[in-house]
């Protein structure tokens, strides 16, 4: 616990980070920047879990554990995503998300 800092402050930081990630996810066209936005979103969620763990249930490790798992999953997701991005780059000579639309009607 930090003197004078409540759980709300953490949530504010995390929420801002979350919506910045959302903004990036929707606005940026480069697949890698989109991936980075996703990392931002995941990270903000982690901060939330940790803060709730620390402030609300300090005797347990639930949020802590979830954060660990999220980091693991994020790593796996990043690996697969980058593999896909490389493949898309090879196929389309570019990684603009707007060109990845073969699944449309």
């Amino acid at each position: 616990m930090i003197e004078g800092i409540g759980v709300t402050d953490f949530i504010v930081v995390a929420t801002i980070m979350f919506f910045v990630g959302v903004y990036g996810f929707i606005v940026r066209k480069n697949l890698i920047t989109i991936l980075m936005s996703v990392e931002l979103i995941l990270n903000s969620v982690n901060i939330n879990f940790v803060a709730f763990n620390k402030y609300l249930y300090p005797d347990l490790l639930q949020g802590y554990m979830i954060s660990l798992f999220v980091i693991g999953i994020a790593a796996a997701e990043a690996a697969v995503a980058i593999a896909i991005i490389l493949n898309v780059y090879r196929k389309l000579q570019g990684i603009d998300v707007e060109h990845v639309d073969t699944m449309k009607y």
Partner: peptide
């Protein structure tokens, strides 16, 4: 209504959010 299925990922994401 098939125009809604544009294949644009970000459009979907925008609508979802």
């Amino acid at each position: 209504i098939k125009g809604l299925q544009s294949g644009q990922l970000q459009q979907y994401a925008f609508v979802m959010i």
